[in-house]
């Protein structure tokens, strides 16, 4: 679970930035924005799950 999550997010980030550059060159500005938003949403979904898991662990640990 641990390190590959970082690599997955980094890969999505690099992919989005490359796609952005390509789409900008072929002057499709709005699609570039779309891919950025899509990539961001995918990554945010993963991160929110991880944050929820962390806060649950802290809650059970410090018996809130």
């Amino acid at each position: 679970m641990e390190i590959d999550l970082i690599f997955r997010i980094a890969a999505i980030g690099i992919l989005v930035s490359v796609l952005n550059a390509v789409l900008k060159k072929s002057d499709r500005e709005e699609q570039a924005m779309m891919t950025t938003l899509a990539g961001l949403i995918v990554v945010l979904m993963m991160v929110v799950k991880e944050i929820a898991k962390l806060f649950d662990a802290v809650k059970t640990m410090f018996n809130f």
Binding site: I6, I9, A10, G13, V16, L44, I51, K53, L54
Partner: peptide, 18 residues
Amino acid sequence: DRPEFGIIISIVAGIIII
């Protein structure tokens, strides 16, 4: 080129370590 992903990676790294 994508500053928001940088912050997300730092959050995930913090979560994994903790």
